[in-house]
Design a protein around this nucleic acid. Sequence first.
DNA 1: TTAATAGTGTCTTTCAGACAATATTAT
DNA 2: ATAATATTGTCTGAAAGACACTATTAA
Lengths: 246, 246
Amino acid sequence: MLSNTQDENYDPRAYPPVAVTVDVVALTIREGRLCVLLVERGEPPFTGWRALPGGFVREETLDDAALRELAEETGLRPGEGELTRVHLEQLGSYGDPGRDPRMRVVSVAYLAFAPSLPDPRAGGDASGAFWVPVDEAGELAFDHAAILADGLERARSKLEYTPLATAFVAPEFTISELRAVYAAVWGEDLHAGNFHRKVLSVPGFVESTGETAARGGERGGPRARLYRAGDAELLHPALLRPDRPF
Amino acid sequence: MLSNTQDENYDPRAYPPVAVTVDVVALTIREGRLCVLLVERGEPPFTGWRALPGGFVREETLDDAALRELAEETGLRPGEGELTRVHLEQLGSYGDPGRDPRMRVVSVAYLAFAPSLPDPRAGGDASGAFWVPVDEAGELAFDHAAILADGLERARSKLEYTPLATAFVAPEFTISELRAVYAAVWGEDLHAGNFHRKVLSVPGFVESTGETAARGGERGGPRARLYRAGDAELLHPALLRPDRPF
DNA sequence: TTAATAGTGTCTTTCAGACAATATTAT
DNA sequence: ATAATATTGTCTGAAAGACACTATTAA
C-alpha cells in the first residue's frame, strides 16, 4: 500500500487534469419570499438550463473568487454599496467524477446572505442572472440542485444560532421585519409576541436606535421601534426552530 | 465585466494548472486525551515537518479519497474492521494561492472521528504516521495548523448536537466512558450525575444492552451498565458546552 | 476499612411557548 | 369605527445545573 509520504513524491502534473470552480448559492428575500440567484446557461453542457452562478478560480483566494462571481452576476462591485453588507461563507466542495461531463471539476460552493438587491437585469449589463423563489428553482444543471438544498439547510440552521438574519434586512429594521426573515427562511410563521421578547432578550442580537419607523404597518398598527444589528456573533441562548419531527 | 455565461466558454485547460488534494484531520482518544493523526514529511517542501495525512485526489469521489488516505496511513483497509466505524465528514476547502510553494493546490479537508485505533507503527508497514495529543501538535506544514484548529472546533461543536461521541468509544460502553469523551474533546470535566441523567433523557442517544460491565472502576465503584449507540442522528435537546464567554 | 464511582432525588433558575391584554395606527 | 399590528404581561412545562444521598466495588 502506498504511503502518503511516497505519494507526495508524485509530480502533481502527472495526475489527470482537474479544474476548480466556485459556485455561489446567493440568497435574498424579495416580497417576503426566500429567493436564490440563478443564471441561464448559454453553452453546453446543459444549454438552456438554470444553474448557480459560478466560474473558474483564478489567481485569488477562494473567498475572493466567490465574491467576484457574485459581483459579476449582480452587476455590483465587490466592496462597494450593498455588496459590502453581503455575508459570504464556504458551504462545501463537490467533486464527484462525472458531475461535469467535460472533465474532472471540483467545485467549492459558497453561501451568500444578501439584503434585497436590485434586479440584475436593471443594471444594463446583459447578465443572464435573476432571482427565483427557492421553491420554484426546479431542476438545475450539474449537481446544483443538491448544492442548493445543502445551502438552504445551512441557512435555516444558521438563523438558529447566529444573528445572520440581520444580513437580510436594511441596516435599520423593526422586529417585525426580522421576524419576516425567519418566517421566509424557515417557511413557517412565528408567534409575534414571543419572538419579540426573545430577540430583545438575547444579548447583542439587536440594539435600539432610539428611533421609530416613519409609519405603521400596511394595514394599521402602531409605529414600530427601529433596531440595528448588535455585536454578538452567536446567539445565546439560541433561537431554535419550532419542533421538527425527531 | 465578464459575465459567467461567457466565462464558461473558456477552455478550462487554458487556466493555470491546479491540483486538488484531500487532507484528513483524524481524531481519536487515547488514554483520556484527544489525539490527531500526523505524518512526518520526508520530501520538500517542509521536509521533516509534521503534517496532516493527505494526498492527491484520483478517479474517485472526494469522500473516497479521504477514506483511502486514512486507510493508507493507519494501515487498515477501508470498509474493514475498525475503519468501518469511522465517521468521516467534509470540513472545508483551503485554497489560498501560495499555501503550497510548488503550485496552486486546493485541499479539501476532512474530519474523521475514530475509536481508539492500533498504533500505525505496529502494523509492520513503514508508515510515518502517529497519534499526537492535539495540544502537543505544535507547528505543522502548509496551513495545516489552521485546518486542525477548524477541525477541533467542528468536533467540539458536533458533540453538542449529534451523538458522534459514540464514534470514539467501543460498540458497547458505559456512561462514564462517554463522559470521558466529552471531557477529552471539550477539555473540561462534566458533572457525573447531571451528565448521566442528561444522556439517558435524550431520545435515541443511547440504548441499554441490559448487560453490566465486567468490573467496577479502577479505583472502586459499582459495575456500570452498558449501552449501545441509539438511532438518533441529532440530539434533542442538545447537550451544550458549559458556559463559554459571551 | 477506605475511597472512588454509579446512579438517583431534589431544588432553583432559566427559558420556550401558549395565551391574554393594551395601546397605536392605516384605512 | 374597524381591523391590524406592536409591545408587554402572565402562566405552564421543559430543561440545565447545583447539591446531596445511597449503593456498590477495588484496593
